[in-house]
Amino acid sequence: MRTENNRRAPLPSDRRVRTSMNDLGYLVLAVLLVGPLAAHADVDLTGLWRLQSSFQHEIKTTEGRTPPLLPAAAETYRKNLAKSAAGDFSFDKSQTLCTSPGMPRLVMLPYPFEIVQEPHRLAFVFQWNHRFRLVDLGGAPPIVDDLSYRGTASGHWEGDVLVVQTRGLVDTSLLDAGGMPHSEDLQITERYHLENGGRTLVSELTFEDPKTFTRPWKTVVTYRKLPPGTELDEDVCRERLAKGLPAFELDKWK
């Protein structure tokens, strides 16, 4: 993550820009600077959220269809679905070893998660097995220096919408519990906005991966806000596995 790239010492060029501007320039500059800051102040995603829309064991498009997979990916998905139906989860380390299910599955689990929002970055803290995810709000696109399950995420505000781009997702992770594959070229764009007086969080996710899909596609997920003061519970996935319980307690959250 690049979290500190917004802070830099003033450069001589900054001074030259300022001293050459007239009063109108100052006004324009003020509008440009204050506008985005005001948007930040108005939209606060802080709090605990829980999936409101249905949990998607097999991820679907907004229209409820199977995503437009290329033939090779479709074949892999078909095999994984068959294994899953037979109770064989060997294709998914999150179910056998409690490794992170990664993106987008982390934000599509029925477990609660907490958003901690700062002006320059934002953290998702997931209850499931104490995973987290950081989003740099510096505005620059994500710079991927390592592949991971959660990817590298950066975001910016477009009015009241938080736009988060995620790249750098390792291709051993999956897009759903059924085993939908993806390549390392996958890019996920999430567009978050509040509805219902701030009690509902809506996320529109766009998936782009030319090595896996014939075209970009979208799905929508909604979350409801949990009462103020609610805290995340400790969740230890390995403890469940040791007891012979599933890594994901989906029945508990129905």
């Binding site: 993550m1 690049r2 979290t3 380390k93 070893l97 490794t99 992170s100 950081l134 220096d145 390592d146 991971s148 399950y149 959660r150 390995r238 040791a242």
Partner: peptide
């Protein structure tokens, strides 16, 4: 930078 560390070993 903060990277991601995951354990892929059995107990």
């Amino acid at each position: 930078h903060l990277l991601e560390v995951e354990i892929e070993n059995t107990r």
